[in-house]
């Protein structure tokens, strides 16, 4: 598959739900889960996530202990551009706070913000958009 997924979230239930939804969209999608954003960043930096994928869609929670979503993106934006271009980062958060929304919009790496719970049609239109943008055939 040319499209694969990374979920970064500190809540197990949210991992379970996102995984289910992604699999419901297409059984063959590969998904990597991270409870701790620092581990995700380490693997992304090392280029270990998915070598075959053309683009990797990252669902990133914002409110997490240790390294939160914003801190993750700040570190992510320091990586080589070649690495950055391989990832399509989406903020997935339970927050309706204006301060969070504004802050998400201030980073170039956040391509989109989705409020939890994510709906199945939000996911499918996101997948459509990414496959067209990166000319991927599923």
């Amino acid at each position: 598959m040319q499209l694969s997924f990374v979920i970064i979230d500190d809540t197990e239930l949210d991992h379970f739900i996102a995984l289910k939804m992604i699999r419901n969209a297409n059984k063959k999608f590969r998904v990597k889960s991270f409870i701790d954003a620092t581990h995700a960043l380490e693997q992304i930096t090392a280029g270990d996530i998915d070598k075959d994928a053309k683009v990797i869609l990252v669902f990133l929670d914002i409110y997490m202990p240790l390294m939160n979503g914003f801190e993750f993106v700040e570190e992510f934006e320091k990586l080589d551009e070649a690495i950055q271009n391989k990832y399509y980062v989406v903020a997935l958060t339970s927050s309706w706070q204006i301060s969070d929304i504004n802050r998400v919009n201030s980073y170039r790496s956040f391509k989109k913000m989705i409020t939890k719970p994510m709906k199945a049609d939000e996911l499918s239109s996101l997948i459509n958009k990414v496959t067209i943008e990166y000319s991927i055939h599923l």
Partner: peptide, 26 residues
Amino acid sequence: FAYSVSHDIRGPLSGILGAINVSREM
């Protein structure tokens, strides 16, 4: 508090709602 309410209270609730959503196809 206002910040925490939107995450610590809404977080688990949105999780439960999301779970109910996916349960329809489970």
